[in-house]
Design a binder for these strands. Sequence first.
RNA 1: GGGCGAAUAGCUCAGGUGGGAGAGCGCUUCCCUUACAAGGAAGAGGUCGCAGGUUCGAGUCCUGCUUCGCCCACCA
Length: 907
Amino acid sequence: MAQELPKTYDPHQVEQRRYQWWLERGDFEAVIADDGRPRYCITIPPPNITGSLHMGHALNNTIHDVLLRWKRMQGYNVLCVPGTDHAGIATQNVVERELLKEGLTRQQLGREKFLERVWQWREQYGNTILMQFRRLGCSYDWRYTRFTLDPEYADAVLEVFVRWWQDGHLYIGERVINWCPRCRTALSDIELERTEEAGKLYHILYPFVEGEGGVVVATTRPETMLGDVAVAVNPADGRYQGLIGRTLRLPMVDRLIPLIADPYPDPTFGTGAVKVTPAHDPNDFEIGQRHNLPRPIVISEDATINTERLREELNAHDNPYLQKYHGKDRYEVRRLIVEDLQQAGYLVKVEDYTVPLSRCERCHTVIEPLLSEQWFCRMEPIARPAIEVVKQGKVRFIPERYTEMYLNWMENIRDWCISRQLWWGHQIPAWYCVDCHPENFDDSYRLKRRESPIVQKSAPEKCPRCGSTRLVRDPDVLDTWFSSAIWPQTVLGWPNPTDELRLFYPTSVLITAQEILYLWVARMIMTGLYFVGDVPFHEVYIHATVLNKEGRRMSKSLGTGIDPLEMIEKYGTDALRWSLLQQAGMQQSIRFYEERVVNARNFANKVWNATRFVLLNLNDADLETLRQRGAQPDDVLDRWVLSRLQRTIDAVQTALANYCFDDGANALYEFIWSEVCDWYIEACKPRLQNTARRAQTQAMLVYLFDQILRLLHPYMPHISEELWQAIGATPDCPALIRAPFPQVNPALIDPDAEAEIAQVFETIRAIRNLRAEVNITPGVEIPLVWLNPADDLSRTRLQRHQPLMEYLAWCREIRWGTPTERALMNPTDGAEVYLPVEGVIDIGRERERLQRELNRVEEELRRVQARLRNPQFLERAKPEVVQETRAQEQELMARHQRLATRLQQLS
RNA sequence: GGGCGAAUAGCUCAGGUGGGAGAGCGCUUCCCUUACAAGGAAGAGGUCGCAGGUUCGAGUCCUGCUUCGCCCACCA
């Protein structure tokens, strides 16, 4: 085996092969039974079927997999359910764009044919992203792959709708909602993208019908004035005292509208007078309700101006302005109206203004607030228990700061508009009787107004009231988030009492990005409590948003993103995972760039080669014998490395338990690279040449690398499994993925060994430093070094490691004491190091070097002594700190003494 | 307008419960020493965003401010 390992790690063939191997062995599969093991379950956030892997997914799914592998190695029965979301608007948009290339619209195709096309599309591309998750190494139980439009899933969605309807949580309402004129559908408040853009504030004079003057209103959307029905002022606003109740003439439209008093207008803003457009502004809608005002709709679903009904209502069919505006786009009319107002003398002024705008999250079209009839979900009663469980800690947010955000949103929750005027999705299970209410249908039986719906899971045969069979189904579908809100319980089988549900609900943790905290997380908690009677998960870990190096959002359209698959191609999956995990902790955002992956790839290669070194040194040994022999520390260095290993195990365990993946990665990196590779392996080389110590050293190394690879497995599953097959696998335990995770053995923690070895390493570094000073290349042996220990403890400790120090400092002989010949000197905490120099040494240069060092020491000494002279320090600081400072002073003084003496000798 | 994050070496970031600052990349010098040049050895580099305060002592705690980012909010 050892000979077969190539010099550099080639991730590609290893990763594909290992993943396939696990799959075939069934290593990702849970046991659906109570087999005595604790259970661990995650239902992943289902990506949109339109999605393809970006860095956010890569981070999210890597984190999932780390936890799954860790728990599995800890002996849990692990179930992870993957799946995809049908993603109503997103998918419909994608397929509509495809149709457009063929010159078709969905309306031309018709609902049924269009849906066929979408299903085709999903058959072809819908699992792309799940295949990409496999390339990330995700150990999900693919037998359970779910889709939010699966028949069973659809049934669960209808169940929710019907029960909520029966329980009175759903209602039909006419409200001003967010309308996307491009997608032609309503959107909920949290599906919007809010921006601020440069615009204008138009001040318009509305004259009194009788007498002079009028009222000036300000607006950013002058085209909406066509739908104005009043002007409102605050009753407390002194400027309008006595004017309230007078009638104004709406310019262009010629409607007579009242000046009313309402608490809404803010007297400190603009003129304090607000034009009221109930059909096209949510605030104005409320004012309209309070004052019982009409609500003419003047903007159509395609964002063109429609004055037809307005002219009818006002009996003003020949109004030239209204004729001119009719059928034109909203922005075109805005321009025209401003022009006309100016000509007619009503435009008082125009100022630059930053306008807050809402855009459609999916297509970025500017939202038009529009009065329309929609289905709503009454949230307050459903939210109440979901607030309680978080307050009681039954659901815990990590990082904790998100708890406050969640509670804040939930306590101010507003009703949820759940109907969408789309075709792709769960069609609302509500039917309307044509014969009970013929007035609610147009000539082709299209629903105009929703009244007395018959709500049930399947189509009713006849109207329960009149027995008619002429029933029309509600054409709308449900918000995508309505179906994802029940994801955890539904993928486990709800509403059926399945074993999966019984065994694995509530799930263990939900891992997600912050942007869907309200959209998704909050709603899952609500439905879980409502329908299953328990929280859907105990913990919510919200990971960082991945940004690019400049701190900007990674975006395909802006070209500011890094493609995870490209990183996998170039550096391997394990390198990509590592580079992400190295930054995954409690932060809100992380900056990601390619150099990180390069570094991670180098680390993987380091692990590869270190293990390769061990394997190359086992050719005379029987692995099984070594394994049985285990770690038997032979000297302080062995005790040191075992002690450091325990600290690393502890750090990794703690890190994983607390979602601080970065801490775990750093602990592993430091231990493997800086301690094991740079020191321990180097120190083992002479021991391996020593026949008396070879076998023991081999056993130590085998044990050490077995442990290291186990620790590494959640982070870098493929390379660790591949290497472990050569060094750790046994017939009883043939796969690392199911091998036990290391646990701390407190008996192996050895602070004395750690202190001793630290001193040894410091001394070696001091020698190497002197060598570099006189340009003696590493590896070239120098004949002699003198060491003068500062005290007895240091002497004992250092002398014990003389051969090791000689080897690692490339030095033929270390002598104890001070040299008689010319030498360079380097003081450390425990000893002075002298490097004798033959022939001419540059006395001047050495004096300079020592003087620099002396100055440094003096400066530090001054600081320490100043502190010790301060009586308040001595009095108030903790005694151990004072003691420590005194020891420091002693040490510095000794060092100072040595340097000064040395300088004197050299003069 | 409110809430929350962030500000530390040229770049990207670590720095429990306060005791004189660390890593990776980059940079300088040297080395292809049979695990690894995707490597090794030795270095240089920082008034820890600004201003106050608490304390014997402050990246670390408190207050205010500045800049950047995120979230929430109906100011026309």
